[in-house]
Computed example of a mutant assay.
Amino acid sequence: MTPTLVPHHPARDWAEIQERMLVPLYEAVYDRVGVGARSRLLGLGSGTGLALLMAAARGARVAGVDRDHARVELARERLPEDVPVAKDAADVPAGDLPYDVITAFHATDGLLPELAALTRTAQSDAVVVLAGWGPPERCATEPVLRVADRLADRAPSVRADLDGLVAGSGLRPAGSGRVACPFGYADGASAVRGLLSTGAFDEAVRATELSQVEKEIEEALAPYVRADGTVWMPNVFRYVLARVP
């Protein structure tokens, strides 16, 4: 696999390489929840705005929150001017209607305080969607993610306890589902840049050199490189649905 030589711009790499891999998840959730012209949706961890764009295309009124400043700035470039996106939910204008759909497509266990606070102000019976990695045996990316944990010298930390988040936030469970989200890349360099843009390797990069992290990702990707140089990794993501009491 050819080493990565292109300078890293994580937010732009997320927007241009990685974010589209989750389109099947966004579509499946929006279909199941019935996102449409009457929906008012708040996206937590809304990234560079693709999921918000897809909801807006269905007629929903949308707003987003993401702690990454660079992703927020890119989202503002991509989204219509009347779509609010901020680093903190408190900075998103409340508008004249409460949210009836709250999504966290990249849920982490650290989301609990923010989620609990938001659901207290959401519309009663609003739908909350939390999503994350599916079973390890159904995710080809799992060995690559273990590289991040080993280099950062930490316990496995990527998988959020989605059901625990629902219970801890005082929400009512309302179902779950799984969606195939294969990761496909034009070449090994794109795969490395895309995976680095997820944030899963940030701690590993701080603990060692970027070049070492790249090298070990490339080695872990080797079984998924096809004869033509493309990279294909079948994955399954899981989502849970809950209701605000």
Rank of each mutant, 00 (worst) to 15 (best):
T2Q: 10
R178C: 15
L151V: 09
V85Q: 06
V83H: 09
D100K: 13
A60M: 00
P113D: 01
R38G: 15
A104P: 02
Y26V: 11
E73T: 14
L221Y: 00
D187Y: 07
A51S: 15
E19T: 15
L195K: 00
R120Y: 10
P10E: 12
L241S: 00
P113S: 03
L41R: 03
V144L: 15
D68T: 14
T103N: 05
G229D: 04
D163C: 06
V92A: 04
S39V: 09
E216D: 07
R150V: 09
F183A: 09
F183I: 11
A167H: 10
A174K: 04
L115N: 01
E209N: 06
E81L: 14
D109P: 11
V62E: 02
D153I: 09
E219H: 12
D91A: 08
D109K: 04
H8A: 11
E81S: 15
R12D: 14
V225Q: 03
V128A: 05
V205H: 01
G45S: 04
V225M: 02
R78S: 05
A189Y: 12
D161S: 06
R12H: 14
N235H: 04
G170S: 12
R38K: 15
P80W: 04
L241N: 02
R172I: 06
L171S: 08
T208L: 10
W14D: 11
D100F: 08
L22F: 05
A51Y: 15
R193L: 12
G49D: 08
L111D: 00
G134T: 04
S190I: 11
D88Y: 08
R154I: 12
E19C: 10
R38M: 11
I17K: 01
V62I: 07
A152I: 11
A200F: 02
D187T: 11
D149Q: 08
T103Q: 02
L171W: 08
A227V: 14
F201Y: 03
R58I: 04
L25I: 09
A90H: 07
R154E: 13
L50Y: 06
T4G: 06
D66Y: 04
L97E: 14
P93E: 05
V65D: 03
A60C: 06
L22D: 11
D88P: 08
V213M: 00
D125C: 06
A55L: 02
L52M: 12
A180L: 14
A56N: 11
P93F: 01
G168T: 10
A70S: 13
D149T: 12
T198G: 07
F105Q: 02
V35D: 06
P234M: 07
R193V: 01
R159K: 12
S46T: 13
M21H: 13
V129I: 05
V101E: 03
Y99T: 15
N235E: 07
G134Q: 01
A191H: 00
L171N: 00
P245F: 15
P173K: 10
V23P: 14
S39K: 02
W133K: 01
R71C: 09
D96K: 10
E77N: 15
V213F: 01
Q123K: 13
S39P: 02
P182T: 05
L145W: 05
Y26N: 09
S197P: 03
E216Q: 06
V33N: 03
T230V: 00
